[in-house]
Design a protein around this nucleic acid. Structure first.
Length: 936
DNA sequence: CTAGAGCGCTCG
DNA sequence: GTACGAGCGCTCTAGC
């Protein structure tokens, strides 16, 4: 959208943000956010007022430009003139303070410009903009009832009292002050203002002031001719307090020359953006407003957390729940019994749900039974497809056991509750169960997930599996599954477990899940991670479930042909290696290889590790390869072997028979930093760095008529580093689109950019990444294969040029030591329990603590983008398929690729808004093609 | 025969 | 003794 230049015919609206906030605050009872008790009344009122404003400002008189203007900081140039200015002002109420930044976020969420200037009051900014707009020939409406702004009225500038819906023009000002706008400051200077602590002339109010000004024409003339005033007392007052009156005029006179960092053109009215607005409203848990605005915009309202936080629950109360030994676990075998449970679920409004299936892979596992729990200690299991587990028949009997409800009947009864917006479904690793249900025609929503709650609360502390959580937080060891299923070749699937054994095991899982939920729910707020959970954990469940079920098409023939080629190559290399070694051995055994290299052939540098085996990693072999043929051939063999075993062979086994596609599974709570991890198979480590490896990606293809589209963040971690460590040079480089590694090299080695050599740049690149990883001389030396002292020299030089980096690292480690955790820009907490350890552990923990906020913030950003993507692409045929940390891969009909890139890039580049104002922009590169190699 | 540790290599 | 964060295939060994 091109910007129009502000001028004749334009209409500027300026909203007095502070007035909105205070009015909202005082007009509403002290509302709090249900899930965590955050005071939210003023924000709620503010949003309602903004919404009403937006709705009202349509039609002929609609603004072309608009901004909400806020005060910033308490010290302004007026305090420099008069230290008592606004000194009487009451301190801001405690429950209002945390709402102030939220109103800024709200404004941005409404897609309205939001402006403030350090050292200036909002009124000065409004004055300056009014003057500028008037000079450009435009009209101005100031939305405020602040009388201090009335001096600006006239010549196309009006005020609008939003509350009374009353327009104030020149005549309106005259009514209020008895003078026209150009003399308002004179009147105010005389009358003073007790609220703002403007002294004025004692004993003179607005009426007297207006009288005097009208008689003498202006304040200056009045003071000049004060001796002519007839009333002796009034005369003396004006003469005695002349200085004070002149000071007062300066205090009330608004500054039309505020140095603005933006222009009128930046304030152009923008369409509301549901992708910004809806998530914010949902985050604030404004149910009614969210729905009303969603209807207005014609979008689907996001799920707003519905469950009120249970009254602050102490561990003692949790202990009041029935002992697990006394728990009552029922087996549900008919519709009547199930209906009773459903009624109870509706009464309470939430239920813990768990599914039992025939396997761990959600895309192939079949539903065997469902457990439910509404009250701690009272759960049920509904067996559905249990079969005879007797080993008489080698393949078991396929006849269903008696005493089970038909699967479809149970699903039909449960579906309305599981899909009911007003019933919260609680699970442990709910994505698994949601996918199982989805494959059975039930779209479970809304959901809570105890695994993700634990992750938001305790990321980095321990894993978040149910067994561990139960042990740790409930002091109860769950019934192990092993004895029921067996292990190894003789293992059976859950449908072969006798129902009597299945009931206590399955029902207990739901019971545990409910108890964990009751314990975690209030703790989210106490730990201030409710927003993290609500915006970056919970909403990932449906998004990832959809992606995983979508899968990506992988061409088996391509992989198979590659496998054959690799086999031949490996065999040839193996022969060569055996000949070079003079004997036959297993090339794939590092132990045997080490013995050949260092014992038999006596090559230099043999170092044994802790297990007594020689190290034969790539570093070692690369060094030896410069002198010897054998290690070089082993490296070749290893590359091919890796490609074949991990990729071309293993990947084929993951192609789903029904869909012909590969369905990975993302673990949301796996990585401590907030990153996702892809498993079964891992599609986040498909080769790309070598030409040969990259060819694996040719097997990842789009369906006929479609293309794969890849969008990836450019240098996101370095950008975040530049922001958090506040490095002006790096920020500037990103703003200018300069090659960041070249710039670093230029700064460090004093080489002009135009004289940059690839080698110097390469070293700088290594240092840039090293910094993100918590740099050490040793590590850099090893990476660059240079002496340690030289590497240390580089690092010293780097810190010298970018001192902010050193400060960031020191501050981060100090924060971790004090709090036991670090945080991302979005509030994700990453615990660092080892940070105060002694010995070598300390180094690890320090570097991890330095890296975590950077990697974690990047992870948060892409999570936010992913959460917003479905709504943004609601009208698009595009499907999101994969996430690879800083990349999203989509599949779309060819003719939809351009639109997709446009939309998805917008979502990704703005994913930090409105929660965090980054001082660097995010940039997204896009590619497309018939396969992943072409698209990347 | 199986589970788990260790190594090595793939990705961002 | 070291770069940060992950997952997985292979080999080897301890122990059933």
């Amino acid at each position: 959208m091109g910007k129009t230049t502000f001028g004749k015919g334009c209409h500027l609206h300026l909203i007095d943000g502070s007035a909105f906030i205070f009015r909202a605050y005082h007009a509403l009872p002290p509302l709090t956010r249900k899930s965590d008790g955050l005071p939210i009344g003023a924000v709620s009122g503010f949003c309602n007022m903004l919404q009403r404003y937006v709705e009202d400002s349509t039609g002929d008189d609609a603004p072309t430009h608009v901004a909400v203007i806020f005060d910033k900081g308490s010290h302004t140039f007026r305090n420099d003139m008069y230290d008592q200015y606004k000194a009487n002002r009451e301190a801001m109420p405690e429950d209002l303070r945390p709402q102030i930044p939220l109103t800024r976020q709200a404004t941005l969420a409404f897609n309205i410009a939001c402006e403030e200037m350090e050292g200036y009051e909002a009124d000065d900014i409004i004055a300056t903009l009014s003057c500028q707009a008037r000079e450009a020939g435009g009209r101005v409406t100031i939305i405020s009832s602040d009388k201090d702004l009335m001096q600006l009225v006239g010549d196309g500038v009006e005020m609008l009292d939003a509350m009374k819906n009353k327009r104030i023009d020149r005549e309106g000002v005259f009514e209020k002050f008895g003078v026209y706008p150009d003399r308002v400051v004179d009147v105010q200077a005389l009358a003073g203002d007790s609220v703002d602590n403007v002294p004025g002339a004692p004993g003179i109010g607005i009426k007297t002031a207006a009288l005097l000004i009208n008689e003498y024409g202006s304040l200056e003339d009045l003071l000049e001719r004060a001796d002519e005033i007839k009333q002796p007392k009034r005369r003396q007052t004006l003469i005695d307090h002349r200085d004070q009156i002149e000071l007062s005029k300066k205090l009330v006179q608004l500054d039309c020359d505020t140095p603005l960092t933006f222009t009128l053109d930046d304030l152009e009215v923008k369409e509301p953006d549901p992708d910004k607005l809806m998530p914010f409203l949902a985050e604030m848990e404004f149910r009614t407003l969210t729905k009303r605005i969603a209807d207005k915009l014609g979008v689907e309202a996001p799920v707003v957390a519905d469950a009120p936080a249970p009254a602050a629950e102490s561990p003692e109360q949790a202990a009041d729940a029935p002992d697990f030994a006394k728990a009552n676990y029922e087996c549900i075998r008919d519709a009547k019994a199930l209906q009773g449970w459903i009624e109870r679920i509706r009464e309470v409004g939430h239920v813990a749900v768990d599914t039992e299936t025939t396997g761990l892979n959600e895309m192939t596992a079949d539903l065997v039974g469902i457990s439910l729990c509404v009250d701690a200690g009272h759960a049920c299991y509904i067996p559905l497809t249990h079969k005879d587990g007797n080993a008489d028949d080698l393949f078991g009997s396929d006849t269903l056991l008696e005493g089970q409800m038909p699967l479809q009947e149970a699903l039909d009864l449960l579906k309305p509750v599981l899909e009911d917006e007003s019933v919260l479904k609680i699970g442990q690793n709910m994505k698994y169960d949601a996918k199982i249900f989805a494959r059975n025609g039930v779209q479970v929503a809304p959901v809570d997930d105890t695994m993700l709650m634990s992750y938001a609360l305790h990321g980095g502390l321990h894993n978040h599996g149910m067994d561990a959580l139960s042990e740790r937080y409930l002091g109860h060891t769950p019934i192990p599954i092993k004895p029921l299923l067996g292990s190894g070749k003789s293992a059976i699937t859950f449908d072969r477990v006798p129902i009597d054994d299945a009931v206590p095991y399955a029902a207990e899982d739901a019971d545990i899940t409910l108890r964990l939920w009751q314990m975690f729910k209030p703790r989210l707020h106490a730990a201030q991670v409710t927003t993290v959970y609500e915006t970056m954990e919970r909403p990932m469940i449906p998004v990832l479930a959809r992606m995983e079920m979508q899968g990506i098409k992988v061409d088996r023939d391509t992989l198979s042909r590659m496998s054959n080629a690799f086999s031949q190559k490996m065999a040839a290399l193996e022969d060569e290696i055996h000949t070079l070694a003079g004997e036959s051995f297993n090339v794939g055994s590092p132990k045997q290889l080490g013995e050949i290299l260092f014992d038999k052939m006596n090559m230099p540098g043999g170092k044994k590790g802790k297990t007594g085996a020689y190290a034969t990693g790539v570093d070692v072999l690369e060094d030896l390869a410069t002198e010897h043929e054998l290690p070089a051939r082993v490296l070749d063999w290893r590359q091919v072997s890796k490609l074949k075993s991990t990729y071309t062979d293993a990947l084929q086994t993951h192609i789903n028979d029904e869909t012909g596609r590969v369905h990975t599974s993302y673990s949301i709570a796996g990585a401590s930093t907030g990153r996702l991890a892809s498993t079964d198979p891992n599609l986040q480590n498909i080769p790309v760095r070598t030409e040969e490896g990259r060819r694996i990606r040719e097997a990842f293809v789009a369906e006929k008529g479609n293309v794969l589209v890849s969008l990836d963040y450019s240098q996101i971690e370095l950008r975040i580093l530049a922001h958090v460590a506040d490095i002006p040079e790096l920020k500037q480089a990103f703003a200018d689109g300069v090659d960041i590694h070249a710039l670093t090299a230029s700064e460090m080695f004093d080489v002009p950019l135009e004289d940059m050599t690839p080698d110097i740049r390469r070293q700088a690149k290594a240092i840039n990444f090293g910094v993100i990883y918590g740099i050490s001389g040793f590590g850099l030396a090893r990476n660059l294969r240079i002496p340690r002292a030289e590497a240390q020299g580089f690092i010293d030089r780097y810190f010298e040029r970018f001192p902010g980096i050193r400060t960031y690292m020191d501050d981060t480690v100090a924060f971790a030591k004090e709090h036991g955790h670090v945080q991302t820009l979005f509030g994700r907490v990453i615990h660092t329990p080892e940070i105060n350890a002694k010995g070598p552990h300390a180094g690890f923990a320090k570097r991890a603590a330095i890296n975590a906020p950077i990697q974690g913030t990047a992870a948060d950003v892409i999570r936010r983008a992913m959460v917003r993507m479905p709504a943004a692409l609601a009208d698009s045929p595009a499907r999101m398929l994969l996430q690879v940390h800083d990349e999203l891969l989509f599949e779309v009909p060819e003719d939809g690729a351009d639109a997709l890139i446009d939309t998805a890039r917008g979502v990704m580049e703005n994913a930090a808004d409105p929660a965090v104002q980054l001082s660097v922009s995010l940039s997204v590169d896009a590619g497309r093609g018939a396969n992943w190699a072409e698209a990347h």
